[in-house]
Design a protein around this nucleic acid. Structure first.
Length: 1081
RNA sequence: GGGCUUAUAGCUCAGACGGUUAGAGCGCGCGCCUGAUAAGCGCGAGGUCUCUGGUUCGAUUCCAGAUAAGCCCA
């Protein structure tokens, strides 16, 4: 028995099983940790993990993000960087609260408070990690190397403390302030809703749609634009669908560039947008008495509809806003800043008073607390007030028209109450103050794909508004602002130490009210614990209580660059090294989420971009092309795939199917394809190598001849390998994680289907010698290099190859491919001419296959001659140089070149448009016509003879050179010919007696080989053979090619009569009968 | 309503500084090759390169508009 050089590769395996063994190997030998340690002194590459939520099971889109991150980190590691990989968990926020509420059957804040905030918070903590195990398993199983045991967790005290510190920086720079924000609000639940909740509750409803007359007081415009005779009788015609906001009206908005008209109607002058005339007056438009641009109406004052109380700001005049439309209503929009985002913005812009005559309970209030004008709707819920307000307007003659309006309106998804867009007191970060810096920093970020920079993200930054930070909720980082009960003084606490220094804890026991204890060092910074801390006011003798809000959880994760290190309380040096991050990658929806929050906090703190490279991933659609969702039932569970096809196949599919920034349809069949096409092929080449290397006992390290002395196919594949290395490095440098593995896949295909296929007999059966050694050395080098190249993408398979191929021979080699160095191309081995030549020759061979196929003569049958036409001299030289490949592959004895195109193919002449276009412009089309109608064969003869052509076209004579003409060929029927645009191959199909015999010999070999296989012989088993045929041809062929047949089939003895245990079959050999028997020696 | 992106074969995707025969894989049909293959090769069927206009000798490619889809925002 020969020594086993490499571990035998069993043909019975599944990739998924092998991966589990590799996982064990990694775990047992701490390969992940080592992959960081070996690069400890190398330049760092900073990866920042976007923290996922572990309160839902991971889906395929999470796998996508994780494998992308992993490939980049592995690549950077192998190219000599220290890549620290800290995991993270996002834990705060409304999604958690809602899950817990659902679980506890809590439907509003009052019930929650009754249940107890403390109990509730404890439930939230449990909820957050309910799927952590699944996440951990998925993460490990897909081979995402990230340190889960040292993860940053946004709910930890350390993390919160860092976030507090960040907020304090904003506070000190006066960037944290209190204002109003219009939010969807449920007055029954007493809470605002997040946008995704709002999206849950849209219903189609019918609301009042009313047009109200606002009496114009004193137009402030010049006399020349004023054909109005009777101003007292002039009204703005204003539209609204929320009558209950009319008591809070403070302005009317028009579109600056719209055309407005004043019409006479029933003795009154009404001002409205010209475009709205038809919808309001139908076929009988009233007479137009004046026209204005919207801008001309600005500042016109009108009589308030209702008393709004005392406000210092100017109110009740016309403003302009770009949100006004004329597709509905009148082109004049009622403005109540407390009840709409547009209204609020315009209120700020024009410094309008914030009149909010609706309470947080959803009931209408009297203005200014004055009781003297008791309106009929006071105390009514908003919708109930509508008819009363309409009736009031009607009685006062101010109602122009009242109809119904059907539209989508959001309702509370929990209690079905219509939501109000309602201005609530809220805390903000003044991001508008750092907008310019953020825009500048964005310029420094490399976005993949690039259009995000100026597109989605840039636009978002351009339109930046202050960050609404506070949430009137429970489960989140508490806003660390304390306010004095008596003087209103505010203070922002920036650390636990400061809290201890300034604060005291109220004794929770009622009996001991007004007694205090010190703030403990380990105080839990969540609500309600932190709510019990009070501070002594430094301005007066009052007591300061914390504002009860928590903050937007996006701010939490947005501080990850800093808070993951518990900076500045610890790890000061880490931050210096790790900011900005080199690389982040998340889904595109994070443009407004994490991508933004990181940039905003990073700009605020350090005035530097928070990350240098950002890979934006797109959504994954279900197999039906629809967005994956549980309700549609088109989700795909990663665990099943990992179980069956394995992680590498899933990863490869993720990388190669389409660029990750294009939305993709997830097709499980695609994973099978990755498995078969790439992994299967690579694995087969690998097992082929191992099998014969063990059989033939070649020492690939010692016996390797220099490349210059190796066969041409060796040089070719090694040249391609170097080009592949360059390509992969370049693509990876550009974060193109699709093109890099696609290039590897193309290479492996060429390796298997050309290099190995054409070299097979060099590996097996050939005599030991330089050529055989060259073949083994070449394939070995290629396989090891490919394993390294592919390691970031298919870390399991790559490691298996590497460990068996490299570690079996070299005890000093790194123990895993992931500890090895990424290949560097050897430019000296690149031979571009050879590459082009090989490509051309393969093209010729491919056409030869087509011609053979057309002839119906099987490839095993040798043919005498292959004729090639249309080749340039250089191309002929190429084919001659690589003729051995053509002979072997097409099984032909000789190759001839012919200049006579006509005999085999149909020739047409076309202008070379690319050359002639710029020369003759319009004339090109005429030349084309002339060439098409002329006798192509004759023209070509002239061209060949004289080197040029005269063509008459539309009255002009054009002289065309050889290079101006494109000679094209087409198949001519009736020959065994294959033609493409410029060349053809033709087969001579006549068989001589010798060829027939040789064909039979090869047929015999083929049949015997198949029988060996069927009989279950090992590849290296020697056999005895018997042949029994009545055909003299078969017998003659056997005798003529006896050596060849015996050698190919490892036959040592030919016997007359087979033994009893022989495996016998009667075969048809090209129509000749023969009985073959094979049996053991 | 706004912004961004996309539109190429039945499906998944390439591609072309603008050049007259637009490719691959999968799937389908037929054939071939094979003692490495969970393979491979060849042939065939399958395309108004979403539509309309513009620029141009020439547009699937560039420009404008439209339509559809996706995401984000309102």
């Amino acid at each position: 028995m020969p020594n086993i050089i490499f571990e035998e590769v069993s043909p019975q395996f599944t990739f998924a099983d092998k991966e589990k063994q590799t996982l064990e190997f990694w775990r047992d030998n701490n390969i992940f940790q080592k992959s960081m340690e070996v690069h400890k002194g190398d330049p760092p590459f900073v990866f920042l993990e976007g923290p996922p939520f572990a309160n839902a099971p991971p889906g395929v889109h999470h796998v996508l993000a994780r494998v992308m991150k992993d490939a980049v980190c592995r690549y950077k590691t192998m190219t000599g960087h220290y890549v620290h990989r800290k995991a993270g968990w996002d834990t705060h926020g409304l999604p958690v609260e809602y899950q817990v509420e659902k679980q506890l059957n809590i439907t509003n804040k009052a019930e929650l408070e009754a249940y107890g905030v403390q109990n509730f918070i404890e439930k939230c903590k449990e909820n957050v990690f309910q799927y952590e195990q699944e996440w951990r398993q998925m993460t490990e199983r897909i081979g995402f190397w990230v340190n889960l045991d040292d993860a940053y967790i946004t709910l930890s005290n350390d993390y919160i403390e860092s976030v507090w510190w960040v907020l304090r920086q904003a506070w000190d720079r006066k960037l944290l302030y209190q204002g109003h924000k219009v939010q969807p609000y449920c007055y029954r639940c007493g809470t605002t809703l997040a946008s995704h909740e709002v999206a849950l509750g849209y219903q189609e409803v019918s609301d009042p749609s009313i047009f109200v007359r606002f009496r114009v007081l004193s137009p402030l415009c010049g006399a020349d634009t004023l054909p109005l005779k009777n101003r007292e009788n002039t009204y703005l015609l204003v539209w609204t669908t929320t009558p209950w906001t009319l008591p809070s009206n403070v302005a009317v908005a028009v579109g600056e560039d719209y055309d407005y008209v004043c019409v006479e109607h029933n003795g009154q002058h009404l001002i409205l947008a010209k475009e709205c005339l038809p919808s309001l007056f139908g076929d009988e438009p009233p007479q137009i008495v004046a026209s204005y641009k919207g801008s001309a109406l600005r500042d016109w004052e009108y009589e308030p509809l209702f008393d709004i109380g005392q406000h210092p700001e100017r109110a009740h005049y016309v403003v302009t806003g770009d949100f006004v439309t004329t597709t509905e209503g009148s082109g004049l929009v009622h403005i109540a800043p407390a009840f709409g985002q547009d209204d609020y913005e315009i209120g700020k812009k024009y410094n309008l008073p914030l009149v909010q005559l609706v309470g947080a309970d959803g009931r209408l209030k009297e203005p200014g607390g004055r009781e003297k004008v008791k309106e009929s709707w006071a105390g009514e819920y908003v919708k109930a007030a509508d008819p009363k307000i309409i009736e009031n307007l009607n009685q006062r003659g101010l109602l122009f028209k009242a109809t119904e309006y059907t539209h989508q309106y959001p309702f509370c998804w929990r209690c079905d109450t219509p939501l109000l867009y309602y201005a609530r007191e809220s805390w903000f970060i003044r991001t508008t103050a750092i907008r310019e810096q953020m825009l500048q920093h964005n310029q420094q970020i490399n976005w993949y794909p690039a259009h995000i920079k100026a597109g989605r993200f840039g636009n978002w930054l351009e339109n930046n508004v202050d960050w609404g930070l506070s949430r009137e909720r429970y489960w989140g980082t508490p806003l660390p602002v304390w306010v004095c009960d008596s003087c209103g003084h505010q203070h922002c606490v920036g650390s636990v130490a400061e809290l201890q220094e300034l604060g005291k804890v109220i004794n929770p026991c009622k009996a001991a009210a007004n007694t205090y204890t010190d703030v403990p060092t380990d105080i839990e910074l969540h609500r309600p614990y932190v709510d019990d801390v009070v501070l002594a006011c430094e301005k007066c003798s009052g007591t300061m209580h914390r504002v009860l809000d928590v903050i937007d959880c996006w701010f939490d994760s947005g501080c990850a660059h800093t808070a993951q290190w518990h900076y500045p309380f610890e790890n000061r040096e880490m931050l210096e090294q790790a900011y900005p991050a080199d690389f982040i990658s998340e889904a595109i929806d994070q443009t407004r989420g994490w991508f933004y929050s990181l940039l905003a906090t990073g700009t605020l703190l350090y005035d530097k971009p928070a990350y240098k490279n950002c890979l934006c991933l797109e959504l994954i659609m279900g197999p039906d092309g629809q967005k994956m969702s549980k309700s549609r039932g088109n989700t795909v569970a990663p665990s099943t795939i990992l179980q069956e096809q394995g992680a590498d196949a899933l990863r490869w599919y993720m990388f190669t199917a389409s660029p990750p920034w294009a939305p993709r349809v997830f097709k499980p069949e695609g994973i099978d394809e990755a498995l078969k096409k790439f992994m299967g092929t690579l694995h087969n080449v690998y097992s082929f190598f191992v099998m014969y290397a063990n059989l033939e006992q070649v020492d690939v390290l010692k016996d390797a001849p220099p490349v210059a002395e190796r066969a041409i196919v060796d040089k070719w594949i090694l040249s391609r390998l170097q080009m592949l290395i360059d390509t992969v490095r370049e693509e990876m440098g550009n974060y193109h994680l699709t093109n890099a593995p696609r290039a590897i896949e193309a290479f492996v295909d060429a390796l298997s289907n050309w290099y190995v296929r054409r070299s097979r007999d060099r590996f097996w059966g050939a005599k030991a010698g330089p050529d055989k050694h060259a073949a083994y050395a070449t394939l070995y080098e290629v396989l090891v290099t490919v394993a390294k190249l592919a390691a970031p993408f298919v870390p399991f398979l790559a490691d298996e190859l590497y460990r068996n191929l490299v570690c079996s021979l070299d005890a000093n080699a790194p123990e895993s491919v992931h500890l090895a160095e990424y290949p560097v191309a050897d430019a000296a081995l690149i031979d571009e001419q050879l590459d082009t030549d090989m490509a051309f020759t393969r093209e010729v061979i491919s056409m030869g296959h087509a011609a053979r196929n057309r002839s119906g003569i099987k490839t095993r049958q040798p043919l005498a001659e292959l004729t090639l036409g249309g080749l340039s001299e250089a191309q002929q030289a190429t084919v001659t140089r690589l003729a051995a490949l053509v002979h072997d592959e097409l099984n032909v004895k000789t190759i001839v070149f012919t200049a006579d195109m006509n005999a085999f193919a149909q020739v047409t002449l076309k202008p070379n448009f690319k050359v002639l276009g710029p020369k003759y412009g319009k004339g090109v089309q005429a030349i084309a016509k002339a060439l098409a109608t002329a006798d192509a064969a004759q023209l070509k003869a002239t061209l060949d003879a004289t080197g040029s052509l005269q063509v008459e076209a539309s009255g002009e004579t054009y002289t065309l050179e050889r290079s101006d003409i494109d000679v094209q060929t087409q198949n001519r029927e009736g020959f065994f010919v294959e033609a493409d645009a410029h060349k053809f191959v033709a087969l001579a199909t006549a068989l001589t007696h010798e060829l027939t015999l040789e064909g039979l010999a090869r047929e015999l070999v083929n049949k015997i080989q198949n029988m060996r296989k069927e009989a279950g012989f090992h590849v290296s088993d020697r056999i005895q053979l018997s042949l029994n045929s009545p055909s003299s041809l078969v017998n003659e062929a056997f005798e003529a090619h006896r050596d060849y047949i015996l050698r190919e089939t490892l036959t040592t003895v030919v016997v007359e009569t087979p033994g009893e245990d022989a495996f016998s079959l009667t075969q048809n050999l090209n129509g000749e009968p023969a009985t073959l028997s094979v049996f053991n020696n």
